[in-house]
């Protein structure tokens, strides 16, 4: 464990807490893509199959359980409790375009050809692009509530912090995880546009609005 990874994980944790806070305080899931949230639940469930047979640490175990539980809870909130506040007509990204290629890539690139390992690869590729329905929705509506942008910023920071973590591990532990690194760089790159607007507008006290 190094500080980059620790702060990355904490940022991930913070993003989920911000999202729950957004839903609770506005009593609405307006502006949140159900599809992205469903993809994240899929990512965690397919990645953490090792929960049942591989013990890493109490930290690792607790985080995995938290990510699976919170992502399912968010789906429940969106699907049932605050259902009327979600507008499916603007959440129109075709998730087949993400699920299909992720499955193909997982079959081509994995560390071992076993069910949990192929699912692990699948979850890595899927996570890299799972934010796209959310960013697509943002692009369509052209604006976002400030708290929603804080959620996205924390999520993006988590991904960004994993990159120095890998560089650090490469030098200190002589370790490299080519699948996670490649997908992680793609994933972080997807946030660049968002970060630009976040830093130049939201952090200057303005509303998140995309130019028309």
């Amino acid at each position: 464990m190094n500080l980059f990874r620790l702060f990355g994980d904490l940022s991930h944790l913070a993003s989920i807490i911000i999202l729950l806070q957004k839903i609770r305080s506005t009593r609405s899931c307006r502006g949140i893509s159900f599809k992205t949230q469903a993809l994240y639940a899929t990512v965690f469930i397919t990645r953490y199959l090792d929960l049942f047979y591989d013990w890493v640490s109490l930290y690792n175990f607790t985080m995995k359980v938290f990510f699976i539980a919170s992502s399912c809870y968010i789906l429940y909130l969106m699907r049932y409790k605050y259902r009327p506040t979600h507008d499916p007509s603007i959440d129109t990204f075709r998730v087949e375009y993400l699920l299909g290629p992720s499955a193909v890539l997982a079959l081509l690139f994995h560390y071992r050809f076993t069910v949990p390992e192929v699912f692990w690869s699948f979850s890595i590729f899927l996570e890299a692009v799972a934010i796209l329905p959310q960013l697509f929705m943002l692009q369509r509506t052209g604006e976002a509530e400030t708290i929603t942008t804080h959620y996205l910023a924390a999520l993006g920071a988590y991904r960004a912090l994993y990159i120095p973590n890998w560089i650090y591990r490469y030098f200190t532990e002589d370790m490299v995880d080519p699948i996670a690194v490649t997908a992680g760089i793609v994933q972080t790159a997807l946030y660049l546009d968002f970060f630009y607007v976040y830093f130049t507008k939201v952090l200057q006290g303005q509303k998140f609005e995309l130019p028309a």
Binding site: R5, D54, N60, M175, V176, P178
Partner: peptide, 10 residues
């Protein structure tokens, strides 16, 4: 460098 043998990251 060695490839990651087990998945200890989240």
């Amino acid at each position: 460098p060695v490839e990651m043998k087990r998945h200890d990251e989240l």
